[in-house]
Amino acid sequence: MAFRARHLLGIEGLGPDEITSVLDLADNYVDLNRQDVKHDTALSGLTQINMFFENSTRTQASFEIAGKRLGADVMNMAVDSSSVKKGETLIDTALTLNAMHPDLLVVRHPHSGAVSLLAQKVNCAVLNAGDGRHEHPTQALLDALTIRRAKGRLHRLTIAICGDIAHSRVARSNIWLLSKMESRVRLVGPPTLMPSDAADWGVEVYGDMAEGLKDADVVMMLRLQKERMDGGFIPSEREYFHRFGLDPAKLAHAKDDAIVMHPGPMNRGVEIDGTIADDINRSVIQDQVEMGVAVRMAAMRLLAENLRADRAEKASLKSVDA
């Protein structure tokens, strides 16, 4: 068994073999998901709780479908983080939930490190569905699966990640993953949305789309949050689109067969031109959504196997003691 982790908190702690094992298994689930009967029993009898301290429709739906297709009992808990005293609720909610014996806990939280804190307090497997600006591991895994299926490999590719790098957990997880798989990562964006130390990350940093996209195999666009559009980080939406939005002219600098990705939801006309987003020859944005369900099924199944093995070992130790 290549996948050893107890929780999926980030890509940083995974080895290349662990990443590959998730992707290999996810490939199988892509096939399953395309059939009429989409059921597997890998998680049957297990309880999965989706706990989202930050709003998300897409990711939560993806995790819910993934769990249900594997036969888990899935429950969604929307925790409005603004209406409660956050810190207390995080630990207290975790302990409360823990007492209900969940097996898989899927957590999104607005603060970096919060999911890892929570994982220390519970007895089940925890999946990070995004913590602050830190990591969003299943997004990086689904991006990797999408790239691997389109390009046939994950190594020796040139991948340009463009836009709001500074605030993006998707960028961080992708940088970890693609670097571990031995691809070249470029970061492209305005200096106000680029960490000042990005050059120390083992990536190439560009402030110009034409240079950054030159001969790229993959162009990964990031969402620009609405609250960052007006004056604070960039002068205006239209200036941003003019300089950093992906349009056919800028994409022409990439390789002819370069694919275009976006973690969604898209701001058409801000970071990406509508015609590119809809171009079925270039855009794999809908594929990413499909891969998302498969990757989450694979990740949850691998974690559940480790959880069961862990529990079996504990039980056998107990019986030896007795």
Binding site: S112, H134, W201
Partner: peptide, 15 residues
């Protein structure tokens, strides 16, 4: 403190 560690961990940092 802003720097590689803080940005990779995604922590709000000050120069």
């Amino acid at each position: 403190t802003s720097g590689k560690f803080a940005s990779l961990k995604g922590l709000p940092a000050v120069s």
